[in-house]
Design a binder for these strands. Structure first.
Lengths: 154, 154
DNA sequence: GTACTTTGTGGGCAGATGTGGGGAATAGTG
DNA sequence: CACTATTCCCCACATCTGCCCACAAAGTAC
C-alpha cells in the first residue's frame, strides 16, 4: 500500500470543482473505486480519505459509545462536516460549499499527500499557518517526532 | 453498509414538509423502502431511523425487562413520541407537529447523518447546544476518534 | 524537433433536486 | 350531516449537480 506524498496545486472553477492530481490517483487503491470522504481537518484544511482508508476511521467511530452524551457529541460533530465525494468523468471532485468556507479555499486548492490521507489547503492559509514555523523549529520538531518512538503521537 | 454522514439544511414549508436530502437517500438501504421512524432524540433534536435500523432498536427494546417498573417507564416514554413516516412522491417527509414543538424546528431543518440514524435539528438549537463546546474540546474529541487506538473509548 | 497521449480547465446542457402551492380524498368534530 | 383539518398527490418552477464536449497545457515517444 503506497503512501500518498507530494503537493499539487490546482485551480478551482466557479462550480467548486478541482482536478484530482493524476499522480495521487495512481496511488489510490482500486478498491476505493474513486470514492472519497472529505471532511474538516484539525488544522484549517480538509482531509480527503479514499474509501478504503475511510472505513478504518469508521471502525474507530463505531467503537464510540453512542449511549453517552459525550459519545454522541463526538459522533455528531465529527460526521457533521464529512461528506462522500467521487471523481467525475474528468477526474475532478467538487468541494462542498461549507468545506470551502471552513478551509478558506476559493480559486486554488493545494493537495498534499500525507500517508493514508490527502490534505487540501488554501495556499494562502497554509502560508499563514506555517509563517511562524522557522526552519530551526521544524528540524527540532522533525527530530522529536521521528526520533523517539514514544513521542510520535502528536 | 455505508453510514450516514454530512449535514444538510432544508426549509420546512407551512405544511411541515421537508425535503429528505438526496445524498442521504442514496445511503438508505433499499430494504427500508423509504419508510422511517421518527422520534424525540436525547438531545433537543429528532432521530430519524430508516426502517431496517429501527428494527434493531426494537430488538433492543424487546430485551428490556417489562416486568420492572423502570423498564416499563423507559419503553413507554420512548415509544410515546415515535411515529412512522414515509417519503412522499417528492422525497419529502412531513414532521409531526408535536415533534416540531419538541425540537424547536420551524422554518428550517438541519439533517445530520450519524452512522445508523439521522438527527434533525433546529439550526438555532444546535448552535445553542454547541455553544459551550469550545474548539479545543472539539479537537480533543476529534483526536480521540482519529488518534490512538487505546484512546477512543468514551 | 514533431506527433501523440495524458492531464487540467472551462462552459453548455439535461436531468435531478428543492420549494411552493392547488386541489382531491380522507378523517375528525359538533 | 355539514364543516373543518389533515393528508397526500399532482403540477410548476428555480436551482443545482453531474454529464458531455472542447480545447489548452504538459508530458512522452519517436
Amino acid at each position: 500500500m503506497p503512501s500518498f506524498k507530494g503537493q499539487y496545486e490546482h485551480s478551482v472553477d466557479n462550480k467548486g470543482r478541482v482536478a484530482f492530481p493524476a499522480k495521487l490517483r495512481k496511488l489510490v487503491s482500486p478498491a476505493a473505486q474513486d470514492q472519497f470522504t472529505i471532511l474538516r481537518g484539525q488544522e484549517p484544511c480538509l482531509y480527503l480519505y479514499p474509501q478504503d482508508h475511510w472505513e478504518e476511521v469508521e471502525q474507530k467511530l463505531s467503537r464510540v459509545n453512542s449511549f453517552s452524551k459525550n459519545g454522541r457529541t463526538v459522533i455528531r460533530n465529527f460526521l457533521r462536516f464529512a461528506e462522500d465525494v467521487s471523481l467525475d468523468k474528468q477526474n475532478r471532485i467538487s468541494l462542498p460549499a461549507h468545506l470551502m468556507d471552513y478551509s478558506g479555499i476559493d480559486s486554488t486548492a493545494l493537495f498534499i499527500g500525507t500517508v493514508d490521507r490527502i490534505e487540501i489547503w488554501s495556499p494562502a492559509r497554509l502560508n499563514d499557518f506555517d509563517a511562524d514555523l522557522s526552519d530551526e523549529y521544524f528540524h527540532e520538531l522533525f527530530e522529536k517526532v521521528m526520533g523517539d518512538e514514544s513521542e510520535n503521537r502528536e
